[in-house]
Design a protein around this nucleic acid. Structure first.
Lengths: 194, 194
DNA sequence: CGCCCGTGTTTACGGCGTTAACATCTGCCG
DNA sequence: CGGCAGATGTTAACGCCGTAAACACGGGCG
């Protein structure tokens, strides 16, 4: 089975997700469509249904791909903050999330879609677990107050997500964005330590 | 011109927005479509274009309607908190926003759409201005630090919006929702006063 | 060798937004 | 009061969308 099969594609599923990712980057959510993705792979639209039960599952897979890309960004940035206090690393994660949303707004619009399909491998880099791990370090040694952990996670995630969305939609000026990110994350830090 | 004209409708524009609102409540975003809205008004799809330059403008108008409904909720709830300290009223506004998002998730999905069209009357009840007015009361008398005001507004709006979205998509249990709302808003309050 | 099944194709259906051409009603002007 | 013009409706058509059914190819196993 060489790569030249040209009838049987060989790795269409991955190719479809790749094409979807590129279409999302270039044309945004509206460009991510079964027919366009299939065409980008040089394949008929119906071929998609050999690999995904529906078009929504395909775009859910592309969304999952986008989440993995963002998660890689966040992990990379976290590595360069290794050893710093948990609160600093939480801020790093938040800044990373927001930076991604503003740098790749179209990809981010996939990230923030409700996940209709469970991820293929539910154990790969996951932003939620990442936040939880850091938040756990804020707990007094030897005990874990689940409710406190949950509210801290929620505050971190909600404020980062909300800020990203509002900045993307309503604050075009990069300088204003930077000011607001710094100011809000300062305050979130205070709230997280409370 | 009685109401029986039946050819010339008389108030089609408003009727379309009404129908869009009801469709949004019952069928969610996917139900809010030019053809369906027109059909709900007993009118052909093309008639829409006598009143809106495009279907997107119609659904933007429906979204604006949804925002006004939510704003009315928030103002009503604020009235019953008149006289309380600003921080308490901010919390009331946040709770109101989140409650609406969870009580009317489909309508809320319109609210949180990026506004493509300026509102018809940009001076009617507006949640943003409301928040700003309360945040201003937190300033020391006689001075206004615009940057501090902006970051407080942003924190309030971003955390409420983010929390609403995350709870709607990922936390079905009402009790867990209530716990998280209380916990997060406590922390946001701390961050707002910092 | 030959058959089966995984994976591709073509074709078709209904729903979508939108436009063009036509129809009807209403208000105003002579 | 008559009639014309413009506002507001209609139908028909186009191209895009997701999806299903029926068919075609081709690689691997008996």
């Amino acid at each position: 089975m060489s790569e030249r099969s040209r009838y049987h594609h060989g790795a269409l599923r991955e190719a479809l997700i790749d094409a979807g990712e590129h279409l999302a980057r270039s044309d945004g959510l509206d460009g991510v469509t079964v027919r366009r993705i299939a065409a980008a792979c040089g394949v008929s639209a119906a071929a998609v249904y050999r690999h995904f039960p529906s078009g929504d599952h395909l775009i859910a897979a592309v969304a999952q791909r986008a989440r993995e890309i963002m998660a890689r960004d966040m992990f990379a940035r976290l590595d360069s903050a290794a050893g710093r206090p948990p609160i600093d690393r939480l801020r790093e994660v938040g800044e990373s999330y927001i930076a991604f949303a503003l740098a790749e707004p179209r990809l981010f619009s996939l990230v923030s879609m409700p996940m209709t399909t469970p991820p293929d491998r539910p154990d790969d880099p996951n932003a939620g677990d990442l936040v939880r791990d850091i938040v756990l370090e804020l707990e007094p040694p030897g005990t874990v107050d689940e409710q406190r952990v949950a509210s801290r996670m929620m505050l971190a995630q909600a404020s980062a997500h909300g800020l990203a969305v509002i900045l993307r939609d309503f604050v075009p000026d990069p300088q204003a964005r930077a000011m607001l990110i710094a100011g809000v994350l300062d305050r979130v830090g205070v709230g997280l330590e409370a």
